[in-house]
């Protein structure tokens, strides 16, 4: 249906509702018009692709379309910040909350309070990360790599897609745990980082699964995944937990609305998203993106968010990135 036709139908519905004197205000009537879902990334990226599918599967259960609105900027914080500042808590405007929403306030001045300005609805998934080296690198396993780094302090270099990214933060967390010192080289995104690894300008890199085909083609090698469980596609590669690092790092994300939403509306949205998450089409897109299904209900997600804010603050402080 074209936007114009849709607009016309809504207008007609509204006029009818107004004539009958029954403009719906109560929560049990929710939703009566399309819901906007702010995705704080440009169209075409992995997250945009994921949310377009989730929006589609969820709208089947919500009974109203969910319109994806791309609002990129501020490492994924401009969208949620706009939501916090301008949207009414009526459930018609929601946003994806990437982990940067919880991390940025520790690093720069922001216009929102991550603990107080959102109504948490549902936790969906996290990204899949890995440490990788060139296929002709001398280290076949994670243990060999760590041993080498221990023996040569400061000489092992690794790339990440930016200082303060989850990938950088986790690599430094690993270094702290093992008493290793390595050299971090921050790139501007994986498009710059992966060629630098291929060209041997850095010895290792921490990134997502975008390089999987380079691994399959025998150019790169995954040393370890940072997920809870092994990946189906790379079942022979261990996780950090298996090699004894006690870390799961996945940059989790979910959906939230502005603060002060009616709990009944939160429940309606949560139930619809839950069913949308269980749809095969949604499961399939997660598989394609090598992402795990990590469901949490509204209360658990809110609690997890508060924990994440504190953890991020401590991490940022230990890395010396805290805002002055």
């Amino acid at each position: 249906m074209s936007a114009l036709a849709r607009g016309g139908i809504y207008a007609a519905v509204l006029i009818l509702a107004a004539l009958a004197g029954t403009i719906p205000v109560a929560a049990q009537e929710f939703p009566t018009r399309p819901v906007t879902l702010i995705v704080p990334w440009p169209a075409g990226g992995a997250t945009d692709r994921h949310f377009r599918v989730l929006a589609e599967t969820t709208s089947r259960h919500l009974g109203q379309p969910i319109v994806v609105d791309n609002k990129p900027g501020g490492s994924g914080t401009v969208g949620p910040a706009t939501l916090a500042a301008t949207s009414k808590p009526d459930g018609y405007t929601l946003a994806q909350l990437p982990i940067t929403v919880f991390r940025m306030p520790h690093m720069v001045k922001v216009s929102y309070n991550p603990a107080k300005d959102f109504s948490f609805i549902i936790h969906v998934t996290g990204y899949t990360f890995a440490t990788m080296v060139r296929a002709d690198a001398p280290w076949k396993t994670w243990q060999e790599f760590i041993a080498h780094a221990k023996a040569n302090p400061g000489k092992v270099s690794y790339g990440s897609p930016g200082t303060g990214s989850t990938l950088h933060v986790t690599m430094e967390q690993i270094a702290l745990q093992n008493g290793v010192k390595w050299t971090h080289v921050p790139f501007k995104g994986e498009g710059e980082m992966t060629p630098a690894l291929l060209g041997g300008h850095v010895m290792a890199s921490a990134g997502g699964t975008g390089s999987s085909q380079l691994v399959e083609a025998g150019e790169l090698r995954y040393l370890v995944f940072w997920t809870q469980d092994r990946l189906k596609r790379f079942a022979n590669v261990p996780t950090l937990l298996e090699v004894g690092e006690k870390i799961v790092s996945n940059s989790p994300y979910g959906v939230a609305g502005p603060k002060g939403m009616d709990p009944k509306i939160v429940k309606i949205l949560h139930d619809a998203f839950k069913k949308g998450m269980e749809e095969p089409a949604h499961r399939k897109v997660l598989d394609e993106l090598d992402q795990e299904y990590i469901y949490m209900n509204s209360a658990d997600y809110a609690a997890a968010a508060l924990r994440t804010i504190d953890e991020q603050g401590a991490l940022i402080e230990s890395l010396g990135l805290k805002a002055k």
């Binding site: 169209a43 990226g45 498009g191």
Partner: peptide, 14 residues
């Protein structure tokens, strides 16, 4: 390589 050198190629990768 599957590596986008600019924003446009990143879109195409998508």
């Amino acid at each position: 390589l599957g590596i986008p050198p600019n924003v446009i190629m990143a879109l195409l990768l998508g």
